[in-house]
Every structure is written in C-alpha cells, then in structure tokens.
Write a protein that binds this DNA or RNA. Structure first.
Lengths: 328, 328
DNA sequence: TAGCATGTGTCAATCGTTTAACATATGGGC
DNA sequence: GCCCATATGTTAAACGATTGACACATGCTA
C-alpha cells in the first residue's frame, strides 16, 4: 500500500509538504495542493491511521464493553453511540462481556493495550479498584463505580414510581415486580425501591420475583417461563405486573397467554426500556422509555471532556417517560 | 504509560530480551522471564498494540459494516462474529451503514485507513467495482458482489420453499409474500422466487407486497402498518402470509390483530430469521431459522484464509430449518 | 531596501515495538 | 579442545506518519 513517501515522489514534492496538505498546516499553494491530491488519487493512497495514532498518541478509538449487542437494549445503545462517536471522529472497538468477570477484565485490558482514548462500560461486575486503576477516560451506564467515575442512567426511581402508580391507577390490586439480578448493585435496582415504596404507600405488600440469570439467550419459555409460571401459581390473583425490563415483560405476556390470562383484561403489564419491538408485540407494551439517544450523546461528551483533560460531573440522570400502550 | 524500555530498565535486562519474552522467541531462562514479568507487573505495563501493528503490518482488527446492530438480526450476527473473532485473537471495529451508499463508502475507506486485516460486509449498496478495488480480505452476508468476493448466506430458496409449502400444508389458500426491497439484488430475494414457484406449482397467483424502506426505526404501525393494512383491504380473503423477515412478520401479526383477524385461525404467518424474540412474541412465530453461529464462524474462517494468502471458496450456503410455532 | 507573508525544501527526531545481525559467555558432550 | 545449545547483550534499521528547526526562495509593501 502506498505511503506518504510514494505520494511525495509522485507529486514531485517533499514528504513534509504532503503532510502539510494532509493536516492543513502551514502555507500551501492551491497548485501544490492539487498536485498532492492528484498523486494520492492515482496511488489510491490512504493515510495509515495506525502510524498516525502512534505518532499523535491518540487513537480516536473508543472502547465499548457491553454484555452483548444481541440484547436489544444494548443493540439500541450501541447504535446511538456509534452515531454520536462517528459524528465526532471516533471509531468504535466493540467487546462483549456476557456479564462475566473474566471477560470483562480481559477486554478492559485489551482496550488499554489498544490505547483507546476512552471506554464506555455498559457492564460491570468487577471490583471498584480495578476501574480506579485504569487511568483512562471512562463512563458507565447504570453502574455507580466508586465516586470518581461518571455514570449515566435513566431516572430509575421515577420510572419505577410511574409504572407502579400507573398500574394502580388502572385498577390493579395485586402487583408483582419482576426484577433483574438485585445482587449486581446496579442503579436499575432503584426501580425496585420505587415499586416497594409505592405499593407500601397504598397499604399493600410488595411481591418480588428475582431473575438471577442473564437474558442473553432467548428469553421466552426457557428459564424465565418456569419462574413466571410459578408466580401465577403462587399468586393466582395477581392482576398487575411491573417488569424491570421489556424482555421480562414479553416473557410475562407470553406465559400469561399460555395460562389463559388475558392482557390487559386479567393482568396488566408494564415494562421498562421501550425496546425496538415493544410497540410491535401484541398487544403493544406499556413501558417506561429511557432517552437512549440523549444518553449516548452525553456518554461521548463526558469521555471527550475527560480526554481533553477537563473535569466532569459524576451523575448524569435522564428523565423517563411512561408510554401507555395496550397492556394496561 | 510504561514502555518496553521502562520494563527493560526495571528488570535490568535489554529491550531485546523483553521483546523475546513477550513474543516467546529465542532462548530465555526461567529466571529472566520471571524478572521481566515482575517488572511489567510493577509498572502496569501493557504492550502498545498500535506500535505492534505498525511494525508487524497486521492489526488483528476485523472491520464490520452492518446496517445497524439495533436491528435484531445484525445484533445476533455481530454477537456471533465477536465471539468467533475474539477466540481467534481478532478485535472488531464496528460501523453502521444504515444502508446508505455514502456511509458505506466512507466506512469502507475508514476501515482501510485503519489497516484492518479484513472486512465483514453485512450491507452492500455500492457498485461491484468499489469492492473489487478494495484489495483487502472481504466476505459478505447475503450479497453476491462480482465473482471473486466470497459470500455467506442461508439457503434462501429452500427457506422460501419450506415456508410456502408449510403454509399450504396448513390449509392456507391465498398466500401473500411480504418482501424486503427487491431492488437491492440481495440473495435473500431468492426467497421471493421460491414463493412464486411454489404457489404457481399449486395453480395459484403470487401476490407480493414490497417494502422498500428499511426497518431501522421502529417496525410497528409506522410505515409498515399502513402498507400491511392496505394488503388486508385489497385482499380480504388472505389467509396466509410469508414474511421475508421476522420483523415484517411481527408487524403483520400486529396489524392482523388490530383488524380483528385471529392468528393462526384466520391468518397463518411464517417469518424468516428466527430472531431473539420470535419465540416470545404472542403467539410465538413460526419461522425459518438461519444457523447464525455457524455462518459467523465461516465468515471469520474465510477472512483468515484470505489473510494467510490462501484461496477460498466463493459460495457458502447454509441449511435452514423451519421452526413451527404458534402462528401456523 | 528592509521586513514580512507566503511557499517549499532538507534534516532529523520521535512515537513503541520488532527483528536481523552479530558478539559474547557459560557449560556440557564428544 | 572443539562444537553446540543455551542465554543475553549491543546496535541499528524498520514500520508510516508528524513535527520542529531552519534554510531559502519570491513578491509585495512600507
């Protein structure tokens, strides 16, 4: 592949001149510029970004660690991050932690070796210390790691409140919360707290089913199904379900139907996330929407500010909306 | 950040020795190896992969151009490619074409500048020539580009045949095909051909609705909805739908329900892809499954073989399965 | 005519790593 | 005593680009 030297020779100018054209520095006549571009064209020259990164000590690559883009939420998140990052001249290196400690550590290391300019963490199972020692611009989604690492999240508590209040307003009397793994200490667990507070405030008892495994395989009947069927068996009079994610809500809809419960007549269901397909499932899902595009933008901004050496806010909480559809 | 020189100094050895340890070349005593590793540990040294890539003329990065990982099919595909690539020591640079010509060209260029070792194309709207001139290991999904670029696809014709025959076997008399954009000359359009052949063989007339826009925004009522509603209006007696993708099938299910048609009693629906959620939607979707994990593996293998300078098969067709569920 | 903006060139160092070539030293086997 | 495997070092070039320092034009202006 042609190098800057080849271009210089072909254009009959010095290497320095070509570099000046490429980087728009110093004085360059129109004539020379034209010659240089012509030479590049003829040779099919593409500046070697690897050499550039080495010299400039900036890779313009952002690292991404997410559980997997197969999960629709992270698919949407990565979509938006790619959009914003590209617009600002950054490339993305994508890795999948599958929520496994070893993979997460391994990829964190990998991204450091690659000298990415910053890392977006959509997954975190490691200890706080590991991240403190990374010494690289970081930003997380929905995970608070220590006090110095900025995080971005929806207003989880408000979302939980909206969902639960809505179920009550629609006449649900016995409301169950389907939770993700509470042990991971994710900010999304505040949805749980909101649910508990609201049902208690209405003089009822919280009922929580925790799903400890991760939904990276198909979420339908499989492991989720049994657990949800158990719920209907143990609480035959359940008439409201608040699921901590749309995926769990879909599974609940599925099981409800299998057991002959009509949604929303017999059971009302509210999800969380407003995924790609939530308006397409039948009936369309009432859910709490997170403003993913805005959150992605903020994530990249926060990284850029750190890259530039500036100080950043730690907390970035985004407002949520209740989207009322057919399941309530 | 510590360099190999720092490590050498700290370990009291020569830079060459450190490099020998890192790359496992030449003779190294256990004692020296230990000292070097200790020094690396103390300094938190990570070899600079950028420098390595420059020197070795191998980046060990694979470029990915897909419409977007927000689309569940590409989410699943990228998931599997990441898995295989990581296992073989490759990293992924992810880009989203959104099926736009300019973006595709821009990203193709970007990946070349980054000296990726190979590119997986999940999207292709450009002219054949552009790709022929890339001079880089390439492999595409479902797109035949010229005669020299290897492609990977499911057995589209067989899938279309299975789906259509199944609908007929289940008693559907008037079967409509919901097609993606036929103009793009994708291999998936063979599903269309199979559909046409089968219904003709049964003495019926093919009815095709083409959806020219891309489903990267939400696929529900929006643009799809109207078109599908029109279909039910123009052909009130339709009792079978073969959708060229699960997303289209979901939309069809959605509209059918809105218009009071029961699935599968009044209309039977078959999709294509077997996405993450297809067993979760209500009722679960009958669909044609592509073996995405195997296809992803093959994609990386095909790239590796090209990287190694070997010759590769051009056609890689994978068998499909009809997964019968609740919509038929 | 001095000064300055403009335009281009030469030279050399630098980013962090790999690697070839060669030197040197030790210890064992024959 | 020679050969050879083992073990480590020194030196220098290379990968492809950027950049600072400096030289040397040309042409305009004050």
């Amino acid at each position: 592949m042609a190098t800057i030297r080849d271009v210089a020779k072909r254009a009959g100018v010095a290497v320095t001149t070509v570099s000046r054209v490429l980087n728009n520095r110093g004085y360059i006549s129109e004539e020379t510029r034209r010659k240089v571009y012509a030479a590049m064209d003829e040779l099919g020259y593409r500046p070697n970004e690897i050499a550039r990164a080495l010299q400039k000590q900036r890779s313009f690559i952002l690292g991404l660690i997410v559980p997997t883009v197969k999960h629709p939420f992270f698919g949407a998140l990565v979509h938006e991050i790619e959009r914003v990052a590209a617009a600002r001249g950054y490339k993305l290196m994508l890795t999948h932690s599958l929520m496994e400690k070893e993979k997460e550590a391994e990829y964190l290391d990998l991204l450091r070796r690659h000298r990415v300019d910053g890392i977006v963490l959509g997954s975190h199972t490691l200890e706080v210390d590991v991240f403190r020692n990374v010494r690289l611009p970081l930003v997380t989604f929905d995970r608070r790691i220590g006090e110095a690492i900025p995080f971005i999240c929806p207003d989880n508590y408000e979302g939980g409140r909206l969902a639960t209040e809505h179920l009550i307003a629609r006449g649900a009397r016995k409301i169950v919360y389907l939770s993700g793994p509470l042990s991971f200490d994710m900010l999304s667990n505040r949805r749980h707290q909101a649910y508990v507070d609201v049902v208690r405030a209405h003089g009822r008892t919280p009922i929580v089913y925790e799903f400890t495994f991760q939904a990276f395989e198909s979420p339908a009947e499989g492991r989720y199904g049994e657990e949800i069927a158990r719920l209907f068996h143990e609480h035959p009079d359940v008439d409201g379900i608040f699921a901590s994610s749309d995926i769990l809500a879909y599974a609940a809809m599925h099981v409800a139907r299998r057991l002959g419960r009509k949604v929303p007549e017999d059971v009302k269901i509210v999800g969380f996330d407003d995924l790609f397909l939530s308006q397409t499932v039948v009936p369309p899902l009432t859910t709490v929407r997170q403003p993913i595009p805005a959150m992605a933008e903020r994530a990249v901004e926060v990284l850029e500010r750190q890259i530039a050496g500036g100080a950043v806010e730690i907390e970035h909480v985004f407002p949520v909306d209740l989207i009322v559809r057919g399941t309530t």
